[in-house]
Computed example of a mutant assay.
Amino acid sequence: MKTIDPSLRDKTKRLTQALRDGGVRVTRQREVLLRILAEAEDHPDATELHRRARAVDDSVSLATVYRTLSVLEREGVVQRHSFESGAARFEVADPAHHDHIVDLDSGEIIEFRNDRIEELQRQIAAEMGYEIIHHRMELYCKKRA
């Protein structure tokens, strides 16, 4: 019998509840999509999410993917990223803040957190009379030769 990771189960529950809170029925197709989102360790776009969901249930439509993502984003449990490299990408909102490196050669998106950068940003904002409410940092990089 396969054991389900508790954090994966929690993510899926949070996504399911967000759909209900958004007034959307949780269908079998949406359950598949929610599981795919919860399992994703990358930042897939809608087309990739659709491809993965159809591999599990071929009745999942691209329209269902877009509508579901829209509700999840509105409810604040999914974040949309519009990286310069193309289509919007999605990830389950994580309470722990992180930033991104976009590898311009491979298209890979790497998450990172650096306390020194976070503190420097707070200091700069404070010196200018501000308090950071929200921010995103994206570094577009190429590997050194």
Results as ranks from 00 to 15, higher is better:
residue 52 R to S: 07
residue 84 E to P: 02
residue 77 V to W: 01
residue 42 D to P: 02
residue 98 H to I: 04
residue 116 R to V: 15
residue 94 D to W: 06
residue 82 S to H: 13
residue 101 I to L: 13
residue 74 R to W: 04
residue 105 D to Q: 07
residue 90 F to N: 01
residue 69 L to Q: 06
residue 100 H to W: 06
residue 122 R to V: 00
residue 87 A to L: 10
residue 51 R to V: 11
residue 102 V to H: 07
residue 77 V to T: 03
residue 122 R to S: 02
residue 54 R to G: 06
residue 89 R to Y: 06
residue 52 R to F: 04
residue 31 E to T: 10
residue 71 V to Y: 05
residue 90 F to T: 04
residue 73 E to F: 05
residue 38 A to N: 11
residue 112 F to V: 10
residue 46 A to R: 14
residue 64 T to A: 15
residue 122 R to I: 00
residue 119 E to L: 06
residue 49 L to G: 10
residue 99 D to W: 04
residue 63 A to Q: 14
residue 118 E to W: 00
residue 43 H to K: 12
residue 79 Q to F: 03
residue 32 V to F: 02
residue 53 A to C: 09
residue 35 R to A: 11
residue 103 D to H: 09
residue 115 D to L: 08
residue 41 E to T: 15
residue 116 R to C: 02
residue 44 P to M: 07
residue 102 V to L: 14
residue 34 L to E: 04
residue 68 T to P: 03
residue 109 I to V: 15
residue 120 L to R: 09
residue 120 L to N: 02
residue 123 Q to H: 07
residue 113 R to F: 12
residue 90 F to R: 01
residue 51 R to T: 13
residue 58 D to V: 04
residue 72 L to T: 08
residue 121 Q to P: 00
residue 69 L to M: 09
residue 64 T to N: 06
residue 77 V to L: 03
residue 56 V to T: 12
residue 101 I to D: 01
residue 48 E to G: 05
residue 70 S to N: 14
residue 81 H to N: 10
residue 107 G to T: 08
residue 83 F to M: 09
residue 64 T to M: 12
residue 57 D to Q: 09
residue 34 L to V: 10
residue 93 A to K: 12
residue 42 D to R: 10
residue 119 E to F: 00
residue 94 D to H: 11
residue 39 E to F: 03
residue 52 R to M: 08
residue 119 E to Q: 12
residue 121 Q to E: 09
residue 93 A to C: 09
residue 28 R to L: 11
residue 116 R to E: 15
residue 42 D to N: 14
residue 119 E to P: 00
residue 84 E to M: 12
residue 103 D to L: 05
residue 29 Q to P: 00
residue 87 A to P: 05
residue 54 R to N: 06
residue 57 D to W: 05
residue 52 R to C: 06
residue 65 V to D: 05
residue 28 R to E: 15
residue 76 G to N: 02
residue 62 L to M: 14
residue 103 D to M: 03
residue 81 H to G: 07
residue 122 R to E: 11
residue 51 R to A: 13
residue 66 Y to I: 11
residue 46 A to T: 13
residue 59 S to M: 08
residue 98 H to E: 05
residue 96 A to W: 07
residue 80 R to D: 04
residue 90 F to W: 15
residue 33 L to H: 04
residue 46 A to G: 14
residue 102 V to I: 12
residue 37 L to G: 03
residue 33 L to E: 02
residue 70 S to Q: 14
residue 63 A to K: 12
residue 64 T to V: 13
residue 52 R to W: 11
residue 72 L to D: 06
residue 73 E to Q: 14
residue 71 V to Q: 05
residue 68 T to V: 09
residue 104 L to F: 04
residue 45 D to I: 10
residue 103 D to C: 03
residue 37 L to P: 05
residue 38 A to R: 11
residue 109 I to S: 01
residue 48 E to W: 04
residue 96 A to P: 01
residue 81 H to V: 05
residue 30 R to A: 06
residue 95 P to R: 09
residue 59 S to H: 11
residue 34 L to T: 08
residue 109 I to D: 01
residue 60 V to F: 08
residue 114 N to L: 01
residue 59 S to E: 14
residue 121 Q to S: 09
residue 86 G to S: 09
residue 35 R to C: 03
residue 120 L to G: 03
residue 122 R to F: 00
residue 120 L to D: 01
residue 97 H to E: 08
residue 37 L to F: 01
residue 84 E to K: 08
residue 105 D to Y: 01
